[in-house]
Every structure is written in C-alpha cells, then in structure tokens.
C-alpha cells in the first residue's frame, strides 16, 4: 500500500477527519473550561497562600503540595471511580473538576512566584503617595504581575492541554482516544500517532502564537 493511500485511509476516508475534529473539540472544551476555573480558583488559592491568617495559609500549602506532587491521572481515576463513582455525574464534569484542581495548584504557585519577584517598596511608595490598597494593586502590582507571570502561564496552558490526553481512562472520547481508535482500526499506530502528535503540536503553537500576538500589541 502506498504511503499517500495509507494517509488517506487513516485521516480522511469516510469522514474520519470529522471524528478527529470532534475529538479535538472535546479536548479544547475541557482544556478551556479547566483553564478558566483553574485560574479563578488558583488566584484564590494564591491569596490564601499569601494571607496572614494561618489556617488558610496552611490549607493552601497542603493543597498545593499534594496536588503538585501527584500524577493527574491518579487524581482523575480516584475522583471518577472513587469519590463520584455512584453519583451519576458525567465524566466530562469530573474531568473538568480534576483539571481545574490541578491547574489551580500550578497557577497559585506561578502567581506567588511572580508576586515575590515584585519590589515591595513600590507598593509602599504608592501607599505613601495616598493610593488606596486596591488602587495600588491595580495600578502598580497588577501590570507588572501580568508581565512576569505571562510566560509561565502560557506554558501552564500548553501543559494542561497535554495532560488532558489521559481522559480516555474515564470514558471520554477526546483527541487521544480518537487517534487510538483509528490506530486500532487501521492497524497503523506509528503513522496515526505521529499525526495526532502534530495536531497537539499545532494547538500548542496556536497558544504560543496568541500570546506572542498579545505581546506585540502591548509593545505598540
């Protein structure tokens, strides 16, 4: 069989590409939702982690160290086949919860490191000049925070997209699952999985591209 024929059979024949797009859509949906919720929860967690109130700080510390120290697949299986096993919650929701929890821990840490990189004196100076706490945060801390945290945040997003490739374990048909199905059906795993990798690579570069574009706009 010729190579082009094999490629056609794997990726295009009988609308196979539509199934791949469906899988891609599931991956994108779960990643986007998890990113949104994870960022919100992560910011809150970072606030807890930096607070002067000990119980909150310790809670955040423990949470971050447990989540960051364990593989996300274990957490996913534990939640789906353990905690939410007989509740009838849809696997997609469990996946979003898991990846939000996971992303939150990472976002909290990246925000904390960005905050620690800032010069405390600037906020103090702003406060002496009569800015309120909120104003000082909005006008002095936030712009610098965004600039410092952005590169790490971008790689967190790309990591998140790749982590979602394990959700086949909880009965969700995402891009990886679709690729595996095609590989089984066509019996050409090498070529099919290379194709799947190129798709993941393309999403990652799309994310990098978006960040690069926003950087360029800021510079203007």
């Amino acid at each position: 069989m010729e190579f082009s024929e094999v490629i056609y059979k794997i990726f295009l024949k009988d609308g196979g590409w539509l199934t791949i797009l469906n899988g891609l859509w599931v991956t994108v949906q779960i990643s986007a939702l998890s990113l949104l919720l994870g960022t919100l929860f992560g910011s809150l967690l970072c606030f807890f982690r930096m607070s002067n109130f000990a119980p909150l700080r310790i809670f955040a510390q423990i949470y971050i160290s447990i989540i960051r120290g364990s593989p996300v697949l274990m957490l996913l299986m534990l939640l789906f086949y353990g905690v939410f096993a007989r509740t009838g919650i849809s696997p997609v929701i469990v996946a979003v919860i898991t990846f939000s929890m996971h992303t939150a821990a990472h976002v909290a840490e990246l925000l904390r490191s960005a905050l620690m990189a800032l010069d405390k004196g600037q906020v103090e100076a702003a406060r002496t000049l009569g800015f309120s706490k909120i104003q000082a945060f909005k006008l002095v801390t936030l712009p610098q925070l965004v600039r410092i945290a952005k590169p790490v945040y971008q790689s967190t997003i790309v990591n998140l997209i790749q982590w979602t490739s394990v959700i086949g374990y909880v009965t969700i048909t995402d891009l990886t699952r679709v690729i595996n199905n095609i590989a089984s059906r066509t019996m050409q795993p090498m070529i099919t999985i290379t194709g799947g990798m190129i798709i993941y690579l393309a999403i990652s570069y799309l994310v990098y591209g978006i960040f690069h574009w926003t950087d360029g706009r800021r510079a203007q």
Binding site: L18, T173, N181, S184, R185
Partner: peptide, 17 residues
C-alpha cells in the same frame, strides 16, 4: 457495557467515532 475499541475486528470504533 464497557468496550475497549482495541481489538478489531471483534471490538473496534468506526470512522464516525
């Protein structure tokens, strides 16, 4: 019923997913 989709022609997933 849980299937794996990993063992054609017994158990597989078609082009339409």
């Amino acid at each position: 019923i849980g299937v794996t989709g990993d063992l054609p022609p017994l158990d597989f997933v078609d082009t339409d997913g």
